[in-house]
Amino acid sequence: MFEVIGERINTSRKLVQAAVVERDADYIIDDVKKQQEAGADFIDVNAGARIGHEKEDMQWLLKTIKPIATVSLCLDSPDPAILEMAYGMVDNPPMINSISLEKNRFDTMMPFLKGKDCKIIALCMDDAGMPASSDDIVARAKELVTRLESIGMKQDSIYIDPLVQPISTDSTKGTMVLNAVRQIKQLFPDVHITGGLSNISYGLPERKIINRTFVTLMMDAGMDSAIIDPLDSKIMAAIKTADLLLGNDNFCMSYLKGVRSGMIKS
């Protein structure tokens, strides 16, 4: 089944940052509960927007969220020191967001990841910048998987992010990433594919319909996870319906639950 990483607890969002500054636990708790009720499988926690305050903000967020979390957390920071601190605060193996092939990031993240019981989001980014072709994405995915396996990470703990790019700037960007995902899943059937989907619609009107359509195409190609807003009931309905049609929903149970809850409706 498709896994949803709830993206809402991020201090780059104005309301979340205000709640963190004011230490408004009720706001954070309410948002996390809503994400979980909507079907989030992980809650992403990012406290990086307030420069100089990330450590104490992350500590406060984790202390606030842990008692009411019914799903695993995704610890989101480019700073291994923050991640080390956060990793020590959680009870269940978390997801880590993220590593890439950019030398500075890679060289600091690998020692942190070695020996950790966690899942890892691995971005197909290197020092040359964003991938320019399907072959670029696949080559970077191969290197990430190989090097993560070398420190003991199992393939089913690796979540490759192929880096979706705007189709408004190049009409081939959609097929580029779809083709790459198919190849990655053929090479590494146990590796997961995740990432933010909304970049595909950047610069275009009526973005949500593009995002909803694109996620179903990506699921058919092999994507089995995404970093999205689970309170967007229409994209959640599209995901559950695609899981049904792709044969991932035994006895249609998840789909029927979505219909009964009112999340899925015509």
Rank of each mutant, 00 (worst) to 15 (best):
L123G: 07
N211Y: 00
T216C: 13
G129F: 04
A86T: 02
R105M: 05
S150W: 00
N92Y: 12
L144E: 06
P94K: 04
S134F: 07
A226T: 06
A122R: 02
M218A: 14
A141K: 02
V215D: 09
D170G: 07
P111Y: 02
K208W: 09
G222V: 00
V145W: 03
G88V: 01
S150A: 15
G203L: 03
I184M: 01
D170E: 08
D224E: 06
C124D: 06
L187S: 14
D156A: 04
S225T: 10
G222E: 06
Q183T: 14
D91F: 01
E102D: 09
P162H: 03
S201C: 02
G88H: 04
G203R: 04
P94T: 01
A128G: 12
D220T: 14
E143C: 12
K116N: 06
S171M: 10
G222I: 00
D170V: 01
L187Q: 11
G88D: 12
M109C: 00
P111L: 01
A139H: 09
I210D: 10
P189K: 05
A122N: 04
Y159N: 08
P189S: 11
I160W: 02
A180K: 01
G152I: 00
G196S: 02
G195S: 03
T216A: 13
G152S: 07
S198Q: 02
I120D: 06
K142H: 13
M109H: 06
A221E: 05
Q165G: 06
E84C: 04
K185Y: 02
I121E: 10
L163C: 11
A221C: 11
I120L: 05
A141E: 03
G129K: 01
A128M: 09
Y202K: 14
D161C: 06
D156R: 04
S100E: 04
K119C: 13
Q186D: 15
Q165V: 14
G152K: 01
M125I: 13
M125R: 11
Y159S: 05
V191H: 10
M95R: 10
V164Q: 08
R212Y: 13
M153F: 13
V164T: 15
D224N: 14
D117A: 11
D220M: 13
S168H: 03
P94G: 05
T108D: 09
D126P: 06
N199W: 06
I210P: 12
M219Y: 11
I96G: 08
Q186V: 14
N97P: 03
E84S: 13
V90G: 09
T146L: 13
T172Y: 13
L148Y: 08
I96D: 10
V145M: 03
A128N: 13
L178I: 15
T146P: 01
S168A: 15
H192W: 00
F112E: 10
I227G: 13
I160E: 10
E84H: 08
R105C: 06
S171W: 07
V177R: 00
Y159Q: 02
T172C: 08
D220H: 12
I184L: 05
N104V: 11
S133K: 04
V145N: 04
K114E: 15
F106P: 09
L163K: 11
G129T: 02
F112P: 05
F112I: 00
A128E: 14
I184R: 10
M109P: 08
V177E: 07
G115A: 02
